[in-house]
Design a protein around this nucleic acid. Structure first.
Lengths: 425, 425
DNA sequence: TTGTAGGCGTTATCAA
DNA sequence: TTGATAACGCCTACAA
């Protein structure tokens, strides 16, 4: 009863009868607009002759326009527009009256019209390329960061999710062009390198998240993957491990000639090259290699595994390795999901985590703190990455001409139980 | 080199010089539009006099318009429009020529303009209310389902995420009104019951996900929470348990007079009432009660705990209960996160899962299969819920007048290890 | 301080 | 089969 009452009160307050009457085809009690059938025009102000009858397929509720507000308030449309946009050049009582009418008539200016006339869409597009059955590790966090920042900047955010192996990704871009979005944020596993070319040709400011591509109007934000991997590896080293396996995911979409190289060197990262391609996978391997190098541990390519970013893939890879390299005492996986698969493999081989084999992951997904032993890992700041991506787009828009450099966010080593380093060795 | 080449090829193919030239302020080689400074008009067709100089702040790349296509192709705008919308009443060579020009000039029709004139936004809004530090259990899946279905229907999706305790949620709705979105999908933990009233007053077709509210233009999709809870509980019963605790989350935003009742009865679910409020929490408790009832097990209110949907809250609640009711042999938690907290509590109390205390959760989050013992749980079909939500909106739009009934999707009991029911007792 | 008029890039309605 | 023209709802000079 309580609730019922308040609902009614609300309706009466915000949906004035004048509107209802119009919608129902009755005679309007104010203003000057009449149905096309009735020619009587006894209104106070005839105003300009742009009035016409209701549109044909008008089954949905009529929307109030600025003109109606103007008529009802007895002022011109520009006056209404000026109070709407707070020009501050409208007389106080005029403004009051206009605002009053707007509220009474439940008026919301059409951003569609506004955008058209302003020649700006105030729209960003978030494009997520997802792999079937594989959660993006921090889509949720990134999304929260993006939406918040986008809203603060006065933009709206369009969301699109596409399967990475869906060949129709060009449609998504076409929609971006038709919507005239002012910026694009791309994340996930790309459907292919052609996307870069398309983005480049499109010319819309684009920020990639965790995808190292820099073009004329495109840049990226990522976290310090080299450092994160190095921290993880060095932590293991500090715990006394020297035979440390590296559990890789898969290669990014690199040009063919780079893909074939199994061991890309740091030199492939060419900051001056407008098209820079260097996957996070490579970055983390680099960090791993750096750590080993710094401690004079030779890099054994036999200890570099590929888990395809899945739990099952990781499990299989680790099981195989444990056979060939029974002396391995630690595994650094570049994703938590693979780390969890690795832990299962270790156990299935009859060993214990972390006593026999220590494991460190990457991402700090929710599960990392739930599994037992709790997974040590490298935490990225997803929300901040999202916020940062939006800020980069804003820069790209405000400063065409110069492309901001990539943003590298700090990471954090989260030591839990799986590396055996909580207290002493 | 390979890549470099293809990029260049692409640029040349799709961004014809004519456009570049214009952008650079040089003389256009075709068409009839000139810079405001130059008055020479030696074009083929003078066409209508709507030409004006470049807009003031035109630092961004000029967008090609339908008029320019028309001029370049030597036809009228309506002809281009007809080609664009496939009216099928254009001569084959005219059409070919127009299409050719569109491709050459890299033309993408403005959906902004189209939407304005069509008086339809082709926009849906997804509104997620998120609680700080609490992931929605299947936001990812739901989102995938929604985006796919939305795109199929020819709509675009606007995304907004708001903190549940953010008082500014009305802003999000205002933006919906200004964008003239045709439908809203709401999910998460609502900031308060006033939202229902606002949604109702707004009159935009709305579908809630897992929030049981039905109004004049609003309905909801959920999964069969009563059945899911009943299945989970009965599974426990079939395993021989009779002292089964129920680990609740918290109450939905119910009207005050309902909130005070600690034990809402089924009768509160009134399908005929336009405003139906019944949280998933209540539904699952109902299923739990049904199961007990069907097996003549008395419901002990002392076994109903509140974990506040967090791991820590659940842990604390279970720890307390284990003290007071040491005879409890099973726990049914209405979220996996709480189930995981419960398992930790059980262990900390010196008991084993599932030997001493069996645990079943709800949601089937990723972690459920990662924890040990792997968590038995009730799986909901998030993606399908998303798809379904979109379809309901489509119905609501196509059929104003009648509001489709709520959609209840089936659930699945996933038996893993935590209930001890994998093989025998 | 307020009003008039033109235009944003489409589609729709007629007319040719 | 094609073309001219009036909206769509708003913003913005410029005029009064």
């Amino acid at each position: 009863m309580q609730l019922q009452l308040s609902v009614c009160a609300y309706v009466f307050e915000n949906v004035p009868l004048i509107t209802w009457n119009r919608g129902a085809g009755k005679i309007s009690s104010d203003g000057c607009k009449c149905d096309s059938s009735s020619g009587s025009d006894g209104a106070v102000k005839p105003s300009v002759g742009t009035h016409r009858g209701g549109s044909p397929a008008d089954r949905r509720a009529r929307r109030v326009t600025i003109r109606e507000i103007a008529d009802a308030a007895g002022v011109s449309v520009s006056t209404v527009s000026h109070v709407l946009n707070e020009y501050g050049d409208i007389g106080p009582d005029t403004e009051r009256r206009v605002r009053q009418v707007m509220k009474e008539m439940n008026y919301y200016p059409s951003s569609l019209a506004r955008r058209l006339v302003k020649k700006r869409s105030y729209l960003f597009q978030l494009l997520l390329f997802s792999v079937e059955g594989l959660h993006h590790p921090f889509f949720y966090e990134v999304t929260c960061g993006i939406t918040d920042e986008v809203e603060k900047a006065g933009y709206d955010l369009l969301l699109g999710v596409k399967d990475s192996d869906d060949r129709r990704w060009r449609d998504s871009l076409r929609r971006c062009y038709e919507s005239k979005v002012e910026g694009i944020i791309v994340m996930g596993t790309l459907p292919g390198p052609e996307l870069f070319e398309e983005i480049r040709a499109g010319g819309i400011p684009t920020v990639f998240i965790d995808i190292p591509y820099k073009g004329p109007r495109a840049t990226y934000v990522t976290s310090d993957n080299v450092r994160g991997a190095r921290m993880a590896t060095e932590h293991l080293i500090s715990l006394g491990h020297r035979k440390i396996a590296f559990l890789d995911g898969h290669y990014m979409h690199l040009p063919a000639e780079l893909q074939s190289q199994k061991e890309p060197s740091r030199s492939q990262y060419i900051p001056d090259n407008p098209i820079t391609l260097w996957g996070i996978s490579e970055a983390r391997r680099e960090g791993y290699a750096e750590a080993l190098d710094a401690h004079d541990i030779p890099l054994d390519t036999g200890l570099i595994l590929h888990g395809d970013y899945t739990k099952a893939g990781a499990k299989e890879a680790v099981l195989g390795m444990l056979d060939n390299h029974p002396d391995v005492t630690a595994i650094f996986a570049i994703s938590d999901v693979m780390a969890i698969g690795a832990m299962q493999a270790v156990r299935e081989s009859g060993r214990k985590v972390p006593k026999d084999v220590a494991v460190v992951g990457y991402d700090d997904i929710e599960s990392a703190s739930y599994v037992r032993p709790a997974l040590s890992t490298v935490k990225q700041h997803g929300e901040e990455m999202g916020r940062s991506a939006v800020r980069q787009i804003l820069k790209l828009i405000g400063n065409p001409g110069e492309t901001p450099d990539k943003v590298t966010l700090p990471v954090e080593l989260v030591v839990r139980e799986s590396c055996g380093g909580v207290r002493g060795l």
